[in-house]
């Protein structure tokens, strides 16, 4: 082995060893810290999304497909009006002719009307801001669907089979985007964010002023849908 080759080998070895040593720390810059089993969600986090509609193409529905796969929303429903839609693409045409396309899902409001109106407390907001439906307590009254300003909730009209074990769903209950809570709790990104190859969706902690999502919201123009309702949504948009 020549001197150069030895040096190259040592440099490569040191880089590899360094990578091994640093890699566990890399998750520090991942969007979410994994939560231990039995450990409650913390209000040190408020999970949210920032969606840049300038990067969102009307022809792309990768986020919708990824959500359906991840959450097992694959049933064939005869009447499309009765289909569950946790996330959908909305095409917007403003009066001045400007057009946008964006994904719409549960906005994970800080003051969610669905939680206010739920008689049994099945609709609830976790300490980390994720709005969920407890499928064991939901009685299927659909009052939350009447209350949601974003039409973000769906009612399961038919018996379901072949569900994803991590995402229980069931006939007669109301459901909506969970922000992929089962992934977030493991420190992973929501499926829609991961699937967005255009980088239009940013997931992060709104409670941390140093997170990328907080910094961008602090310095760039962003919008809450139906901001007039003062629900303080966890999902923000850019470009509309």
């Amino acid at each position: 082995m020549t001197e150069n080759a030895r040096r190259g080998f040592l440099a490569a070895g040191a880089t590899f060893a360094g990578a091994i040593a640093v890699a566990p720390g890399l998750h520090l810059i991942a969007p979410a810290l994994a939560r231990g089993a039995g450990e409650p969600a913390s209000n040190a986090n408020r999970w949210g999304l920032l969606i840049d509609t300038n990067k969102c193409s009307a022809s792309c529905d990768a986020c919708v497909k990824a959500c359906a796969t991840e959450n097992g929303i694959t049933e064939q429903v005869a009447d499309p009006r009765q289909r569950s839609q946790w996330i959908r693409k909305i095409d917007i045409k403003e009066k001045n002719g400007r057009q946008h396309s964006l994904p719409m899902m549960c906005q994970h409001c800080s003051d969610p009307p669905c939680v206010d109106v739920c008689p049994t407390g099945a609709s609830m907001k976790r300490a980390d801001g994720i709005v969920l439906v407890d499928r064991h307590v939901c009685i299927g009254c659909r009052y939350c669907m009447m209350a949601c300003p974003y039409k973000a909730r769906s009612f399961v009209h038919e018996p379901l089979t072949e569900q994803n074990p991590q995402v229980p769903r069931g006939i007669g209950c109301v459901e909506a985007c969970t922000l992929c809570v089962h992934r977030v709790d493991k420190g992973q990104l929501p499926a829609c964010v991961e699937a967005c190859t255009e980088g239009a969706m940013l997931f992060g902690n709104l409670a941390d002023p140093n997170s990328e999502i907080s910094r961008r919201i602090a310095h760039e123009a962003t919008t809450q849908v139906r901001a007039d309702l003062k629900l303080n949504t966890g999902v923000r948009y850019q470009g509309i």
């Binding site: 939680v115 206010d116 109106v117 739920c118 008689p119 049994t120 407390g121 307590v137 939901c138 009685i139 299927g140 009254c141 659909r142 009052y143 009612f155 399961v156 006939i171 007669g172 209950c173 109301v174």
Partner: peptide, 22 residues
């Protein structure tokens, strides 16, 4: 008409007092 009419006992025992339904 409830989606889960079998859970009527839940409606009778668990309350969220911000709900007009409750």
């Amino acid at each position: 008409d409830l989606g889960r009419a079998d859970r009527v006992m839940i409606a009778a025992t668990k309350y969220n007092f911000t709900s007009v339904f409750a």
